[in-house]
Amino acid sequence: MESGNDDVLRKAMTSHRRIVLITDGYSTPFVAKTAISILRYRTDDVVAVIDQEASGTTAQQLLLAGGDIPVVGSLSAVNDADALYVGIAPPGGKLPDEWRPLILEALRRKMDVVSGLHDFLIDDEEYVAAAKQSGARLIDVRRNRHKSTAKRHRFRPGNVRIHAVGHDCSVGKMVVTLEIQRGLAAAGHDAKFLATGQTGIMISGEGVPIDCVVADFVNGAAEELVKANEQHDFLLIEGQGSISHPSFSAVTLGLLHGCAPDGLVFCYEAGRDQVKGLDNVDIPDLADQIQAYEAVANLRHPCKMIGIAVNTRNLTAEEADAELFRAEDRFGLPACDVYRTGADKLVQASIALREEVFAR
């Protein structure tokens, strides 16, 4: 069955309970970040990871997430799977040609195939024909029909919006917002995570693939996403790109003005001083970036930085502690690594922001 990608199809992803992730040949932390996050946040729904060279190991050994979920070499090693998820996000977003036989096999097995790449499944005649014959669904997470500009909506009083921004791409903005949302919910607050990228949508089953929205409609798509969820007390809005990134700053600015945050969390990776994906391009000073984010955000709505999320994955435990201390001392804001130290400081900063917003 040929299927486009709309809200119904996205929500259908949450019904998948026996997911096979494919990262075959691309199982690195940068490229396989979609698989890593699904293993972290939908662990119980994943039954296997496909990587031929690593077959016989576990997801934890291969991708440092997912525990004892097995890594297998083919679909024949998995029983009763209901979906195949493309677990990579390579530069350019192209689906690897060598995966074609495996994707066709999944469709013949009546498995839905879910992809967050720019290279749409629905545009491939062979995939469409196979899906139609078996009744499987092709779900292109980035496919969208957003065609509305922002209207400067006045969001419901009492709805507090917190948005993750960063000094570069791939520093953990999605994970930070997910962990703050989890912390707020655990403390009894009405908080919801809003996905703006393919991986977040695969985890939550809804959201806007903001980097695949036509430029004029980015602000409007972000505004509509928030508007549709403004009944919640807290909205944790996933960030994309960086305001200083030569390639992706446009989507970052569109999100800032579309979601009109009350508070920002600044994310950076310790030790990274050059832009990912570009040769010899230095990342601007962090303090200058924080000042720029606050200035640009306040053009739309009163907003301030409420915390720092440091990605310390390349540091020892002692080095990470020292980096967090330096961040708090330099910026005068609570700092944590949500992987290593948890998100409690950012959760408390979010609660304090809500009290401040109500007092205005």
Rank of each mutant, 00 (worst) to 15 (best):
I210G: 04
I203V: 09
V213H: 02
D211L: 02
G188K: 03
G183I: 07
V176D: 02
I201L: 03
M202R: 09
A164R: 06
I203S: 08
H189V: 08
D211N: 06
G197I: 03
I162N: 02
A191L: 06
L184K: 04
M202G: 02
T196N: 02
C169M: 15
V165H: 07
H163M: 15
G183C: 00
A215Q: 13
T177M: 10
M174C: 12
A187K: 15
G183N: 01
G166Y: 00
A186Y: 03
R182I: 08
L178A: 07
G197V: 00
T199M: 04
A186K: 10
R182V: 06
G197W: 04
A187P: 07
V213Q: 02
S170V: 09
H163K: 11
D190Q: 09
F217Y: 15
I210D: 12
I203R: 03
I180K: 03
G183P: 03
M202A: 12
E179R: 05
C169R: 13
M174Y: 08
A185I: 13
H167P: 07
G200W: 02
G197C: 00
D216E: 15
V175G: 00
V165G: 03
K173Y: 07
C169W: 11
H167D: 15
K192V: 13
E206D: 15
S170E: 14
V175A: 12
I180L: 09
D190Y: 13
T177G: 02
M174G: 10
G207H: 00
G200Y: 02
Q198V: 05
H163N: 14
A191E: 03
H167V: 14
V175E: 14
G200C: 00
Q198N: 11
F193M: 08
G183T: 04
D216C: 10
H189C: 03
M174K: 13
G188I: 04
H189F: 14
A187S: 14
V176K: 00
V213N: 06
G205P: 07
H189G: 08
L184V: 11
A187I: 08
T196Q: 00
D168Y: 13
A164I: 06
H167F: 11
H167S: 15
A195M: 10
I162V: 09
T177Y: 11
R182S: 14
D216Y: 06
L184C: 02
G197E: 01
V176L: 10
G197D: 01
G172H: 03
